[in-house]
């Protein structure tokens, strides 16, 4: 899916937990996430902490979209 969106000319960032699949599938900008059933959250945290975590990950995704890349890059920090 990421590839078709990229192919259409829109930069796309893939937020996913299983990075090797994302790499195999061919995403170019990849942000690793927390866990398969809750990629952008963590139920052990308080709701506020959880939202902060989610915000950091989304900000990282936005940073990825603002970064020129050649080939595949995993934005893990």
């Amino acid at each position: 899916m990421v590839k078709e969106i990229e192919r259409a000319g829109i930069p796309v960032v893939h937020m996913c937990t299983v990075v090797p699949i994302s790499l195999t599938v061919g995403a170019n900008r990849i942000v690793p996430t927390v866990a398969i059933p809750h990629p952008l959250g963590n139920p052990v945290l308080t709701p506020d902490e959880e939202k902060q975590l989610r915000r950091r990950l989304v900000e990282r995704a936005l940073a990825a979209l603002q970064t020129e890349v050649e080939g595949q890059v995993v934005f893990d920090k």
């Binding site: 899916m1 078709e4 960032v13 937020m15 996430t33 990629p39």
Partner: peptide, 26 residues
């Protein structure tokens, strides 16, 4: 199939002048 859906989605996103996409997967 994923390719087909995404191509259709991408077409609409382009028409809507979307400049960036965040795609989340589980």
């Amino acid at each position: 199939n994923a390719k087909k859906y995404a191509a259709a989605i991408a077409k609409e996103l382009v028409e809507a002048e979307v400049q960036g996409v965040i795609l989340t997967s589980t």
